[in-house]
Design a protein around this nucleic acid. Structure first.
Lengths: 226, 226
DNA sequence: GTCTATAAATTGATAGAC
DNA sequence: GTCTATCAATTTATAGAC
């Protein structure tokens, strides 16, 4: 069922999948012909149809394959136990935003949105492999932080995760999805992560700084983009 | 330049624009033929091409028209001066979410995302007429609230507006854009607006409640969805 | 301006030889 | 499995009569 990345897979199948993925991401599903797919992969159309029953099936397999890759690539590698909470939040935020703003990930998201009316299953698969999986991971992390006493007791980890991720997306995510953000600006990403972490901690931190300290830390963290 | 909604406009032009808009929103740009557009509008293809030079031009005019309509419909009608700040935030949040989650608005957003690779100008026009205009309006409002002393002095109105709107979008906005939210559930919208307002005030309210009061108000405001 | 009829190209998909 | 050659349908767009 899952052919991708395995060494024993037909090289033509790989060539078709990779070439077609690049075409679909660059021009969109509707604008790509099976003729172009075959030409790009260096095979004939008959061979193409020997591997995939049709254009929709090819598209679906590409989306599913990229969802698996997305699910595997998203979780961060750091352990939050070694860091102060604010540093850990910023670190995670930068990691996640850098992943999310990759052109291929934006292109995948765009394709799923464009075709969600015709093929709703793909939209659900994407949502569960992407946003939902990440939110679950963050919620688990935040639940630990509540137990460790670094977040306010009584915090709902799911809600907190949703709000943190929403703060992280900000307008940058909207613009990137609309193709208005050609390359991810590292400084904008860093600023956004710091702003989101500062906001999140203002809501959920177990120990609130006093008013005077608050102003200081917000001066440090709230550097504005653009 | 702007024909829409004016009474002196050719009825056939209107019929074409409205019919084509419905078709594009229902099936996507690529899946709709000019034949179907002409049939739906009750005109011949020759007439269709007499009004619009091609499929792309027709599409662009539909997007621009809907952007204007979106820009006109988004601002809320209430005056925040009559309400306590938390109520005003929730009220605005519900108003904006209800607007944003309309199927037509989601469909417009989807179409722009789907075609932003081919026609980048449309993505920019959409972003400026929609997200950017709303953020500017909210930033203006929040700047007033800072002056009135209901928000923390030193607050950056633009950043605060971005964060409030991000909290409002939450996961519901993502799901709706992916077509996973068939109809906007009024209770989910209301809950999301209350959660966003509570989070926003925890970051930016001028006067913080004491720890004990904080728990109470968060019990009231943080009702979790689904 | 509006129609009918049609051009000209491209589409997704297949038949049959090897 | 892989190719060449081709089908049948559909596509965008236009010519010419009224």
């Amino acid at each position: 069922m899952s052919d991708d990345d395995l060494p024993g897979v037909s090289p033509k199948r790989r060539a078709i999948l990779e070439g077609a993925a690049a075409l679909f991401m660059a021009e969109g599903f509707g604008a790509v012909s099976m003729d172009a797919v075959a030409r790009t992969a260096g095979v004939s159309k008959a061979t193409l149809y020997a591997y995939f029953s049709g254009k929709d099936a090819l598209f679906a397999e590409i989306i599913r394959g990229n969802c698996r890759r997305m699910q595997a690539a998203a979780p961060p590698s750091f352990s939050s136990h070694d860091l102060p909470l604010d540093r850990a939040l910023v670190e995670f935020g930068e990691h996640w935003l850098n992943f999310l703003l990759q052109p291929q990930v934006r292109a995948l998201h765009r394709m799923v949105i464009a075709e969600c009316g015709r093929i709703p299953e793909l939209a659900r698969a994407f949502y569960e492999a992407g946003p939902l999986a990440v939110r679950a991971w963050v919620a688990g992390w935040l639940a630990e932080e509540v137990l460790r006493g670094r977040l306010r007791p009584g915090t709902d980890p799911d809600l907190a995760a949703e709000q943190f991720l929403s703060l992280l997306r900000g307008d940058l995510f909207l613009r990137a999805t609309l193709g208005l953000e050609p390359q991810a600006n590292p400084e904008a990403v860093s600023a956004l992560a710091r702003q989101a972490a500062a906001g999140f901690l203002a809501i959920y931190a177990a120990i609130r700084p006093l008013a005077s300290e608050r102003m200081d830390s917000s001066e440090n963290l709230h550097r504005h983009e653009s």
